[in-house]
Nucleic acid binder design. Structure first.
Lengths: 154, 154
DNA sequence: TTTAAACCCTATAGCGACTTCAGGGTCAAG
DNA sequence: CTTGACCCTGAAGTCGCTATAGGGTTTAAA
């Protein structure tokens, strides 16, 4: 199987597959005489595993760790649980801050309904008011999505 | 006012302020004899505007556009509405896909409660099953958060 | 007066997960 | 024999910072 067929079979872009190879997520495939990559059926399985994990928004590092687990059947699965718990926590945190954000934006959106002069635009006024520290449609209180240092993946 | 004071006044990191300058989001400040940046009061206002928009998760390009509007009071504010609508739509789409994702992950998490051998781990089994296209705890049906081309900012 | 901390400067590289581009080689059909 | 679809490598671009290297300046204390 050539890389284009693998791409079609898995829904992963050709460039992305090569990128996964470069960062060590998929093992180096055999090569045909002309230098083309030659994949076996197992490559589809592995690539689909990666794809599925990516739809779950896992990072490539996490996926790599999971792939390692699948090839070490006798290891404890405590770490799998832990990895998933952390990921779930990240997703829930992001969800929470996104819900707040959506409300802020929706409220801001109500400030201007018609197309009039920018000088009278309630949205702009509201945003400028925030720059003055005055009352504003949005009152971020939980400190989420802030500009401060964030280490965690979003 | 020097850059450190501006940073303290706005809560934006010094490096980030310099970065904003580099990408043209804030205008070039005057310089002292020693080469230090010298800001006026208006810089605080502009920087706070940017900060507020960033807490609303707007992209720097969008913020630039909004800043342009604030300096063109006679322009129509149709575009401001439009920009905000698009941003809101992006946020809502992301919210929807995150909600689906959270459910998928939570369900997946129930597959394994104890620390046993990785070979018996329900989570891994489930993920591998997905690679086979078999039944799985997660059934992504809306196609969100897919691996296909996405142009939009997340 | 020296010296150390705290500030400032520029330029550059790194992050994650790709995407795109430049500049080629290979292969089957018409 | 040429066109077009596919393949290759390596490098740079995306976004919004963050960090690092390698300097210069200012300010306060010892």
């Amino acid at each position: 199987m050539r890389i284009g067929e693998l791409a079609k079979a898995t829904g992963i872009d050709v460039e992305t597959l090569r990128y996964y190879e470069r960062v060590g997520l998929v093992q180096l495939p055999a090569r045909q005489a002309n230098g083309y990559r030659a994949y076996g059926q197992d490559a589809i399985e592995r690539a689909n595993f990666i794809r599925h994990c990516r739809t779950l928004d896992m990072g490539l590092g996490d996926i790599k760790r999971l792939l390692d687990f699948t090839s070490k059947p006798d290891a404890g699965c405590f770490d799998v649980n832990h990895l998933l718990d952390e990921h779930l926590a990240r997703v829930r945190a992001k969800l929470k801050s996104l819900r707040t954000l959506e409300q802020q934006l929706a409220r801001l959106r109500t400030q201007c309904d018609a197309g009039h002069r920018a000088a009278d635009c309630g949205i702009l006024q509201d945003l400028v008011a925030a720059a003055h520290g005055e009352a504003c449609a949005c009152h971020p209180s939980d400190g989420n999505a802030s500009l401060s240092k964030r280490k965690a993946r979003e």
